[in-house]
Design a protein around this nucleic acid. Structure first.
Lengths: 149, 149
DNA sequence: GTTGATGCAAACGATTTGCAACTGC
DNA sequence: GCAGTTGCAAATCGTTTGCATCAAC
C-alpha cells in the first residue's frame, strides 16, 4: 500500500469512528494501523504480541474488544477457519482463501470469474445474502515439500 | 435416505473401521448412525444431548474423540463457522452452506454451476487442493421476519 | 466533568488430555 | 489377554466479562 493510500485509509477510519461516536484512542489507532500493514491475517493474539513491543501496557482483552468493535463498524472481517483461533483482515481487494490443512497457514488468491458469477436462485428462499466467501482446503507447497523429505 | 441406502452406508462404515484397525464399539456405531440421520449439522454437544437419551453412560469427550477419529478416516467434515462451536456433517451430495449471521443457523444449498467451474491457475503455486467450500453469509428468512416486527 | 475505553483478574465455554477401568477382537 | 476405547475429572486454550481506574472529548 502506498504512503498516500495508507494515510487516506487512516482518515477514513477517523471519520468512521467520529460518526459512530467512538473515541479515537491510542490503542484503536495502533491496532488499526497494524491491521492495515499486516498481510497475514493475524489472530488477536498475534496482533497483541506485535503491538506489545510498541505499547507495553496494551492488554490482550483490549485487542479482542477493539477487533469486535471494528467488526461491528464493518471495518474488518473475522475469517472462518477450522482452527481454534479466529483470524482477522481489513477489507481490501476482493479475494478468497486457501487454508493449508497441515500448517494452518492462510493464503489469499483472486478469482474474478467467481466474483462475477450469480448465486443460485434457490438462495432467495433461504435468506438475503451479505457476502460470499470461498475457502479452498489443501496442502500448501511448503508443507508438501516438507512431507517429500 | 432410503432404508436400503442407510444399511449400505453402515456396512461401508464397518468396512472402513475394520480396514483402519478400529474397534466397532457401540458408541461409534451410535454416533455414526445419528450423523447419518441428522440433517442439521449438529455440534458435538448437540449430538451428545441426543444420544444421551439412548445411551445414558455416553460421555461428551467420547463424542469429541469419535468425531475426531471419523474426520481422520475421512468420514465427515468439520465445518468452518465463525461461531464458537464446530459443526459436523457426513459426506453426501455436494453442496454449500448459507450461514445466518443473526441466529447461526446453517442451511445447505446446491450450486452445480460452481461445482463445474475450474479453479484459478494461481492456486497451483500455492498448493494442492483437496476440496473447496463456499460459505454465504447473510440473514435467513426467519430472522428477517422477526426483525420486521 | 462526563462518558466511554482500558487494564486487570477472574469467569466462561468449547475442546483436549491423563489415567484407571473396561470391552471388542 | 491385550490393545484399543471409554468415562471421569482435571487441565487447557481462546475469548468474554465485571469492575475500578483512566483518558478523550
Amino acid at each position: 500500500m502506498t504512503e498516500k493510500k495508507f494515510h487516506e485509509q487512516l482518515l477514513h477510519f477517523e471519520q468512521i469512528c467520529k460518526d459512530a461516536g467512538l473515541k479515537l484512542t491510542h490503542q484503536r489507532l495502533l491496532i488499526y494501523t497494524e491491521l492495515l500493514k499486516a498481510h497475514d491475517h493475524p489472530s488477536a493474539e498475534t496482533l497483541y504480541k506485535r503491538l506489545e513491543k510498541t505499547l507495553p501496557t496494551l492488554s490482550l482483552d483490549t485487542v479482542y474488544r477493539t477487533l469486535a468493535t471494528f467488526e461491528k463498524l464493518g471495518l474488518l472481517h473475522r475469517l472462518e477457519t477450522v482452527t481454534s483461533q479466529a483470524r482477522y483482515e481489513v477489507f481490501g481487494l476482493r479475494h478468497h482463501h486457501f487454508l493449508c490443512d497441515v500448517c494452518g497457514q492462510l493464503y489469499d488468491f483472486v478469482w474474478p470469474p467467481f466474483d462475477t458469477m450469480s448465486l443460485p436462485p434457490s438462495l432467495n428462499e433461504i435468506g438475503t445474502v451479505d457476502r460470499t466467501s470461498v475457502v479452498v482446503h489443501g496442502t500448501c507447497a511448503a508443507c508438501a515439500a516438507k512431507k517429500g523429505h
